[in-house]
Design a protein around this nucleic acid. Structure first.
Length: 215
DNA sequence: GTGCTGATAGTCT
DNA sequence: GACTATCAGCACG
C-alpha cells in the first residue's frame, strides 16, 4: 500500500501563486491518472514556465485567446493540452496571468505506478517485463510528448480542472528523504531566430539528480 | 555518448 | 506558406 495514494489533489490555491513559485513547487509532487479501471502515477521532475508580459515563446503572447489556446486563459489549475508537430501532445497547468496568460508545462516524470500500462501506450510492451530495464523505464515519461502518450492525455481533457476527473496532482513530498537539488536552465526546443531573447530565459526547473529528465 | 533527419498536421501569418 | 513548447531511428566513433 502506498500512503500517498490517498493524498488529496493539490487545491486550486496551490496554482494561484507566482508562476515560477508554482513551477518549482510542483517538482516532487505526484501526477495521477485514472483511466480504464487502472491508475497511473509519476513524480514530477521537470517543468517549464510559459507566459507573462514578455515571453515571445508563449502561446498567449498575443494577449488574445484562440480556439487552441482558450483554456490557457482560464483560472489557475485549469488543464491546457495542445497538439504539437502533428503527432504529440503537451500537458500544461494554468497559473495566474499578470499582463498575459501563463501556464506551466509538465515536461518529465519519474514512473511510479502503472508501468506496464505506460509501456503499452508507449509502444514498448514487448520490452516490458517484471524487471523492466533501466533503459526502458527511463524512456517512459522523459519528455512532454512521451508522458502524454503514456498517460493517454489529449485534447479531450483540455480546459477541465486539474482536481479530479481522471487527472490530478497529489501532494507528495513524503517520498523525498532529503531535499532535492533544484536547478533552472533555459527552456527546451525554442528557436532564438523566432522568439528572440526569450529562448535564453532560465525558466526550466528540474530535480537535477533525477535520471528521468527529458535530457 | 553526439548529431542529423524524417514523420506529420494543426495553427497562424 | 512557414513554423512548431517532439520523438525515434540511424550514423558515427
Amino acid at each position: 500500500m502506498e500512503v500517498a495514494e490517498a493524498a488529496e489533489p493539490l487545491s486550486r490555491s496551490f496554482y494561484d501563486r507566482d508562476k515560477h513559485t508554482v513551477a518549482r513547487d510542483l517538482l516532487g509532487h505526484r501526477l495521477v491518472r485514472e483511466i480504464d479501471d487502472h491508475r497511473l502515477a509519476g513524480r514530477i521532475v521537470e517543468t517549464e514556465v510559459y507566459g507573462g508580459p514578455d515571453d515571445r515563446a508563449s502561446h498567449a503572447d498575443s494577449g488574445e485567446p484562440t480556439e487552441r489556446t482558450r483554456s490557457m486563459f482560464g483560472p489557475p489549475g485549469t488543464i491546457y493540452i495542445y497538439k504539437i508537430y502533428g503527432m504529440y501532445h503537451c500537458l500544461n497547468v494554468v497559473v495566474p496571468a499578470e499582463a498575459k496568460a501563463a501556464a506551466i508545462l509538465i515536461r518529465a516524470l519519474e514512473p511510479l505506478r502503472g508501468l506496464e500500462a505506460m509501456a503499452k501506450r508507449r509502444g514498448l510492451a514487448d520490452r516490458y517485463d517484471e524487471s523492466m530495464t533501466r533503459t526502458v523505464k527511463k524512456n517512459l515519461l522523459s519528455g512532454p510528448g512521451k508522458l502524454c502518450q503514456a498517460f493517454a492525455l489529449d485534447r479531450a481533457l483540455d480546459g477541465t480542472a486539474l482536481a479530479g476527473g481522471g487527472l490530478w496532482i497529489a501532494s507528495d513530498t513524503s517520498t523525498d528523504p532529503e531535499p532535492s537539488r533544484i536547478e533552472s536552465t533555459p527552456r527546451i526546443g525554442l528557436n532564438p531566430d523566432t522568439v528572440g531573447e526569450a529562448a535564453d530565459y532560465p525558466w526550466r526547473y528540474i530535480l537535477a539528480d533525477s535520471p528521468y529528465l527529458s535530457r
